[in-house]
Write a protein that binds this DNA or RNA. Sequence first.
RNA 1: GGCCCGUUGGAGAAGAGGCUUAACUCAUAUCCCUUUCAAGGAUACAUUCAUGGGUUCGAAUCCCGUACGGGUCACCA
Length: 552
Amino acid sequence: MKNYRDLAELIFPDVTLTIEDLERKYPPRDVEGEVTRFAPSPTGFLHTGSLFTSLVSRLVANSSNGIFYLRLEDTDTKREVPGAKETLVEGLKTFLVRPDEGFDLPKEKGNYGPYLQSQRKDIYRIVLKELVARGDVYPCFCTAEDLNKLREFQERNKMVPGYYGEFAKCRNLSVDEAYERISKGENYVLRFKSHGDHENKIDCEDLIRGHINIAENDLDVVVLKSDGLPTYHFAHVCDDHFMRTSIVIRGEEWISSLPLHIEMFKRLNFPLVKYAHLPLIMKMDEGKKRKFSKRKDPEANVSYFLENGYPPVSLIVYLMTIVNSNFEEWLVGKNVLDYPQFKFSFDKMSLDGALFDLKKLDYYSKEVIASFDLETLFNNVKEYAKVYEETLYELIVRDENYFKHILNIERDGDHPRKDYAKYKDIYPSIKFFYRDLYEDIILNSGISFNPKFDKTLIKTILEESLTLLSSENEQVWFAGLKEIARKYRFASDNKTYKANPNDYVGQVGDVAEMIRISIAGSRRSPNLFTSMMILGEKEVRYRIKFAEDNLL
RNA sequence: GGCCCGUUGGAGAAGAGGCUUAACUCAUAUCCCUUUCAAGGAUACAUUCAUGGGUUCGAAUCCCGUACGGGUCACCA
């Protein structure tokens, strides 16, 4: 007659340490604040929703003077994507959600590691050995086919599907039989023997939702897969206990497995962690709300924002507006870049998933970009262009100083220009500053002068405006332009023109437009005078001539 | 389908029984400013809080039912 102890020895012959040893090795932390963590699985890019979760975790640690760490849950070898670990680590860094400890490259840091689950096998095995010896975990020999049959049967008979109670065949196997089958080399997994009753409701506490009433867990879930790696549920309990997490912050989709986790904590005699289940970020799709999808929504991948040239801070600031409902009110009158000073609180968090609002992101991103000083902006744009927009990068490196001047148009003063929500917006609006591109615009964009005005008149005015080029400032220049306007019977402002349109051929705006079209090849442009100053007198003369030759 | 969570304007939301003629932010619209554009300023935009019923002198706020939306039911996390 074999007993549980024998079974544990058979399964884990090499394991000599005990849970007590682990408790000693990973003692409770000496921190005053909360210990939070971000625990993604390396199955691809950094998801916008995950960034949201990690942001909250970071905020909670910050506001309590605690610790935020990164743990990688790489127990699903089938779904693991090469390079995903790096992407995740990099992603967190570029989006300014820096972990204090945990998985990192080239080397992890912290005393509660390893921070890669696949390297924590020994820990799981120690805990499991003890659980097997106690009879709390048992080997299950059911095949995928057995399980499918079971499920079909349960569905056919309208029963709750799953491996539980009378359906948990292997839970009642005698130790001798289990011992023998394992000895023979049969495949098996380890299941947790639940003591729960589905009819019983338990009260779960959630930091955001308060009390949640759910049925007790009665499923004998798999804790160790046949490949020797733990499932999420078991790894979560072990890791968050021995890594001494104080608040588990994760997506709402985990609420339904809360009773399971609570049962495991209890049976292991680990003090229960606090939980905060975050609402999911949603997306409107054909009139319906749905969870952000990797496949359908490009913006579900944070790289979307990088590729389009949103400064990472912009996304963070936008996510902050979802994080706490009072954030925006708090921000009024402050600079967006002061966002880290905001005090996070769980009870200011909404309970249902927010729709991702690109327009609002754009709004905040304009604010962010306008708040950067020129040097920062320039470096960011250059870095962005280098990776994502070759054509722009080429322009920048032609003459960095020249590009800086362009970038800096109307950024000073009380009302800085806010025309860029993302760096991708820059190229189309500034390319005319470059001669080759300018010529291409004039020749091929289909731009033309207002046909309302006589060609010789346009030419005369253009020529005459050249005399203004030496104006010392915009006021002088514009006064001069008004002079010219008046001379050719244009009203000096729109109001006078509108009052008596028949007395004039047009108004100054029309005159300015002639120049604007000539030098920018467009009816819209940044400040005309500044643009001309940047281009330089020689270039302006060249362009006026070029426009005359090609557009008149 | 079972179970859980949720439901205040186009969007994020404030609101915890009378202070709400429902705050604030984005979007949208109109106007003002203006040499174009961007920005800025002003105004408008929920007679009503998914819905039906209760409790109460009084409810967006408390209770119950219904509808709708989301999540979850794996050897995936």
